[in-house]
Design a protein around this nucleic acid. Structure first.
Lengths: 198, 198
DNA sequence: AGACTTTTTCCGGTTACGGTAAAGAACGGG
DNA sequence: CCCGTTCTTTACCGTAACCGGAAAAAGTCT
């Protein structure tokens, strides 16, 4: 139900085509909401059927014609209405946590590799967000119209930093665990060597 | 595809019935993975069909009989195999961010109320996690078997603290915004009063 | 008797996720 | 001129997830 509203949210800015929306969902709003163009187009037809948006064909030369979608009054009202409802806090739902939950039934080598890849991923995103922040909000402040985007960006930054730190913690914890295991197996070896009297 | 693996992860601990699993998904693993009992039972039959788990009926007196599910060797291997694949970083996908993204097309009063509810929600969860941490890991350390659960908990803690801080930031930003708007409308009033020469 | 817990199951609808594919036009480079 | 890429929309498919409602059948507690 929320994808439709995410699209409406995009269209409150200015009318857009499905293609542009797909681009938007790859960058700005897509930082916290992933979809592909197929889902967008499907959702757009549904929204049009509901009368929340209106398509207007724009003839182009040099490019295929495009369908620019505009919010209707109903669509605007529907979005406003949706936005006035309390949000439901999302759950984290990260595969990694499932792996960790059953850590002793899992191979640690690929898990550590995964954690390191994730560390890099979140670090990259953090830096990317920082660059965007510096570029779009050099003063660290925003006009009322852009305040919400600043706040979203700030959550993104906080989130990526938080996960990055956690990844580092997890990686060292995992290393400690394996080195401890190696130490015990070494001492077990010694015991065994002594015991067998080699 | 991941719900099945989350269930397998639970069953690596010890055999369980669907009912127990549903309980587990309301507490420990459910802190970062939400489902209801219907989905669990459906997934359980699928897993049984695949041969990943095995059901054994236990006759009870005083209660309906129950079906205890145990991991099979194939199930264990399948989970191990799944866990060795790289995880996909989840997206945040929070309704609140969509609302903020289109802040100027939204009523701020319910949005602020929502933010305050969320603040309380995340604060509660933070405290809850802290209590669990103190209870289950009083030393802040864990045995190798429980290390993964400690790490998951730590992520949960970090996450809730991070969102809590962000909520506070967002609420003050929203307040600043409305008070600024009130100030400009006040001065506009004054200008108008002067202009109309009341 | 009524309410609640335990335990499993079925149903149906909507949404999301993921991949595969086509189509037509024009622009760019080689 | 062919080839690849960008632009733009649309279609289909299967599976997974989400949501909510419902009902069994047994027992316990009030």
């Amino acid at each position: 139900m929320a994808l439709a509203d995410a699209i409406l949210a995009c269209l409150t800015e200015h009318p857009m085509t499905g293609y542009e929306l797909a681009k938007t969902f790859e960058s700005s709003i897509g930082f916290f909401w992933k979809t592909d163009h197929q889902q967008i187009y499907r959702e757009l037809s549904r929204l049009r059927d509901r009368g929340h948006i209106q398509g207007r064909e724009v003839v182009q030369s040099g490019k295929p014609n495009k369908l620019v979608y505009t919010l209707t009054a109903e669509g605007r009202a529907a979005f406003r209405h949706w936005a006035a409802r309390p949000s439901t806090p999302p759950s984290i739902k990260d595969d990694l946590l499932v792996r960790l939950y059953a850590l002793d039934s899992v191979d640690i080598a690929p898990l550590r590799a995964d954690l390191m890849a994730r560390l890099e991923h979140h670090r990259d995103r953090y830096e990317r967000f920082e660059r965007i922040l510096k570029k779009r909000f050099p003063q660290g402040t925003a006009s009322p119209a852009d305040m919400g985007k600043l706040l979203s960006l700030r959550l993104g930054l906080r989130h990526e930093r938080m996960v990055t730190e956690w990844c580092e913690e997890a990686i060292t914890a995992l290393s400690d665990l394996t080195s401890a295991a190696a130490a015990t197996s070494r001492s077990a070896d010694q015991r065994e060597r002594r015991g067998s009297g080699d």
